[in-house]
Each structure stands twice: as structure tokens, then as C-alpha cells.
């Protein structure tokens, strides 16, 4: 099945602000061999919650599969995938 050409996707993950949860999230990027181009971690503005944002260059199906791996992770509250170059720039600035 032909796959769509890779493009930049920004994935934003809201998750518990706990070291073990953040460690696990970074581990997902590594163990799933996610081709990330940028990574940022900030407080989300909600107490006890962090926002992990990363950019990956992949087709939409791959980006969705990466999002699903985060979605099922304990401590993750929400996952959002943006396929917008402007948003990508904004999120990683």
C-alpha cells in the first residue's frame, strides 16, 4: 500500500507532571523509534500537569500511531496531532 509522503507533524501530549511519567514518555519515543526533529517540555498551566511537544516527520498514519502509543500510556491526559507547518514552528520555537 503506497504511503503518503512524510510531512511535519506536531504532537502535543498533556501528562502528569511526575518524573517517572516524563521518563516513561521519553522512553516511548526511544523504544518506538520515533523520528523526532524537536522536543519541548513546559508546564501546561494546570497544576500537576506538563505539556510535552515534539515534531516528527512522517506520514499521517505513522503520526497517528505514535499518538496512540502515548494515548494508552498511564499518566497521559490527552494527545493532539497537528499537521500544520505553522503550528510546528510555533510549538518548537
Amino acid at each position: 500500500m503506497p504511503s503518503a509522503p512524510p510531512s511535519a507533524h506536531t504532537v502535543a501530549v498533556l501528562l502528569d507532571d511526575a518524573l517517572v511519567t516524563l521518563n516513561r514518555a521519553f522512553g516511548v519515543l526511544r523504544t518506538r523509534n520515533v523520528p523526532i526533529e524537536g522536543l519541548a517540555l513546559h508546564p501546561s498551566g494546570t497544576a500537576g500537569e506538563s505539556r510535552l511537544t515534539f515534531v516528527l516527520r512522517a506520514d499521517a498514519a505513522t503520526a497517528d500511531r505514535v499518538a496512540q502509543q502515548f494515548h494508552k500510556m498511564m499518566g497521559v491526559r490527552s494527545v493532539m496531532v497537528l499537521a500544520n507547518e505553522d503550528s510546528t514552528t510555533e510549538a518548537t520555537r
Binding site: H71, K72, M74, G75
Partner: peptide, 12 residues
């Protein structure tokens, strides 16, 4: 008696 869930833990 413990509460049913640990605090601040979100679940998929």
C-alpha cells in the same frame, strides 16, 4: 481504609 485510587493519577 485506602481511597480507591492514588491521587492525581490519570488513566487512558
Amino acid at each position: 481504609a485506602p481511597r480507591a485510587r492514588a491521587r492525581g493519577q490519570s488513566r487512558p
